[in-house]
């Protein structure tokens, strides 16, 4: 890893100022960024740690909305969101391994938008809102493709606001070496319809399976998915699974998530 200057701001404003430098990079839990820097795939001149900013911490629930501070770790979400939004807490509690969950954060995961990460599925599947230092962005407008988001240079996620669905579940088929999602499906049933978000499968990153949403909004049962199929054209294909296999898993895991959501 090349050397850099580490700065540790105490407020969002200080962090934004420190990130104004073109060669600066925000550091949250570092569970992706530090390994990436070790491989010299990233070499920022300055890292701006977001770990010491009180405004980015905390989990709260009011009026059917769970708000998670961007610097909340996966372990924190697994614990603190368990009663307000169990499906989200369960997803957070199965990311990586316990030590990774003690460092990795929701803001870091969402900003990175790894095509195989779990959180983007929950954010898109819940129709959550990403709050930044500058604005609020709907999940449908946020994820723009593999490792790409609507965030501007130097913009910091401060929180993610999740409307709590009537029922929800996340099913993940793990890639056995990395433990990332080979495919993961988040299903959420709201009073006005069902959302289905898929991670791990597509070359374009997380996406909504709209045919399944339509079918499940009429009949929230695994049987409603019979006859549907997912096109494999844009699916990831690698030694762990072909595009066709991933497309197949999308349907299987959607059905399992619907059954588990009840």
């Amino acid at each position: 890893m090349y050397n850099f200057e580490l700065v540790k701001p105490k407020t969002i404003d200080e962090a934004v100022a420190a990130l104004a430098d073109e060669e600066a990079q925000a550091l949250s839990g570092g569970q992706t960024l530090l390994p990436t820097m070790k491989q010299r795939l990233a070499a920022p001149d300055r890292l701006v740690s977001l770990a010491n900013i009180a405004e980015l911490q905390g989990v709260s629930a009011t009026g059917g909305v769970v708000t998670i501070g961007a610097a909340a770790t996966h372990a924190t979400v697994a614990e603190k969101a368990a009663s307000a939004y169990p499906a989200l807490a369960a997803l957070a509690g199965h990311i990586g391994d316990p030590a990774v969950r003690n460092r990795g954060t929701i803001g870091g995961s969402v900003a990175n938008n790894d095509p195989s990460a779990c959180y983007p599925a929950a954010v898109l599947g819940s129709g959550a809102t990403i709050v930044t230092n500058a604005r609020e962005i709907a999940a449908d407008d946020f994820f723009e493709g593999m490792f790409s988001t609507a965030l501007d240079e130097g913009e910091i996620i401060t929180a993610v606001k999740f409307p709590v669905p009537e029922a929800a579940n996340y099913r993940k088929f793990i890639q056995p070496a990395s433990r990332f999602a080979l495919v993961g499906v988040f299903v959420a049933r709201f009073a006005d319809g069902v959302r289905v978000a898929v991670t791990g499968a597509s070359n374009d990153g997380v996406f909504r399976w709209s045919e399944a949403e339509k079918a499940l909004s009429g009949d929230f049962s695994a049987a409603a998915l019979e006859g549907l199929s997912v096109a494999s054209d844009d699916m990831i294909s690698d030694i762990h699974g072909t595009a066709e296999y991933r497309a197949h898993l999308v349907k299987v895991l959607t059905a399992r998530a619907v059954k588990a959501a009840g």
């Binding site: 540790k8 570092g30 569970q31 372990a75 030590a99 990774v100 003690n102 460092r103």
Partner: peptide, 12 residues
């Protein structure tokens, strides 16, 4: 808390 010390900066 358990952490992987190869994936955390000393300064953190």
């Amino acid at each position: 808390e358990a952490v992987k010390s190869c994936t955390m900066l000393a300064a953190e």
